[in-house]
Design a protein around this nucleic acid. Sequence first.
DNA 1: CAGTGGTCTAGACCACCTA
DNA 2: AGGTGGTCTAGACCACTGA
Lengths: 248, 248
Amino acid sequence: MINRQSFIPIYIQIAQTVMQNIQQGGIAPGEPLPSERELAERHHVSRVTARQAIDELVKRGMAYRLHGKGTFLTQPKIRQASGLISFSEELRQRQLRPGSRVLQQRLMQASADVAARLQVEAGASVLRLDRIRYANQQPVAVEYAHINLTLLPGLDTEDFEAQSLFDVIRQRYGVYPTWAEAEIEARIVQPQEAEWLHMGATEAVLVAHRRTFTEAFEPIESVDSVYPGDRFPLYMGRQRVLANLEET
Amino acid sequence: MINRQSFIPIYIQIAQTVMQNIQQGGIAPGEPLPSERELAERHHVSRVTARQAIDELVKRGMAYRLHGKGTFLTQPKIRQASGLISFSEELRQRQLRPGSRVLQQRLMQASADVAARLQVEAGASVLRLDRIRYANQQPVAVEYAHINLTLLPGLDTEDFEAQSLFDVIRQRYGVYPTWAEAEIEARIVQPQEAEWLHMGATEAVLVAHRRTFTEAFEPIESVDSVYPGDRFPLYMGRQRVLANLEET
DNA sequence: CAGTGGTCTAGACCACCTA
DNA sequence: AGGTGGTCTAGACCACTGA
């Protein structure tokens, strides 16, 4: 079961076996996961490693610990998490088929505003990419993106109707989007957007201003996503609320 | 510096000393934190404990690790995090003075719908609490809340204009809100809400459907919060994007 | 009481980065 | 080479839970 020669850490492998067990229905929501000591013994690892494995599930909101009692599976997550991840990944998790129509894709020089958001110098190369996004053929969002080409030279020649932006970034450049930040507001839909999204002229839209960063906190892209207010609610996922360090 | 007799874990104490150092300007954004080995030596603890301390800062999005290089302070967060936390805590973090006007506060029996959301039996005791929320005297939200009285018997007699709901829950009942889940949509403001929030009749509002849970995932409350679309954007904080376990 | 998670030790080896 | 974080060991004691 556990391969010690693998480049995948042991605790991830153990977390995966527990995940598989869950997905195959071996553990019902509310029921206990194997205890840390049991996992440690079963896989011949130290308890610290077993604990680290369970931590991976807890971090994802899939399980919760109760001191003295055990670690338990949370209720099923219809939709996993989102609001901060990319459109394609979001749809993938919702089991919907993503699609895109590129409205414009062109190289440009960063304005002062865009430069500030991408933390590059004014005039630096930026890819402007506007797309309509589809889920199972239905339009569900309009995205206006500015992508940091200083970090990703040559990205502008790719075809983003056929492939996911993040897939290209990861595979061609080895750059991994690791941090995200978003601010969300509501406004009345603009006429052009209403047409693209098949909405009435006086309906409301959600606008998410999102920035994605590398592991080292370099901005990869700055995107404004426009969603129909009611057809496609943003799910903020299940999160652990952390106590303030100061208050302890 | 470190008190080994304290009921506060050593790694939390160390995290606090690092935090203080940061807040006093000892470390600038982008600069490295003390290394794990250095912290361990300085406080005479094992490296695992020092690492656990730094983990607390990383979990909060205050620092990020770079393999082989070090752990670095993130850029300052103007607004800390939110969308999932309570109104009072959110304003506290934004340095605004919270206020409330109670629209209605009454004991009622859970309808089938409310019962489902609070995971209680239909007909169980529920506190309905509708409030206008103020920040520095300005109305910034309308909240319609259903609170699980099965978990918090007697809560209905408290005065929620004078004190925070969560403060009462923590102090009187020892119940700690630990998990949160939210879904966000946009719609046109309703006439009554427009009046309360000083908005025009055709403006858009953000509606957050939020549930808060105990450590053991028992629902504490289910709240619909209505925010003016543009005056009070929701900040989703800075979060680490976790890779899928399956894809590893 | 036994079983659970929470914290902690004193090491170890690895992979990665910079000089 | 020497520093960093990433992973791992084989224990330990504590606090909490439930029978």
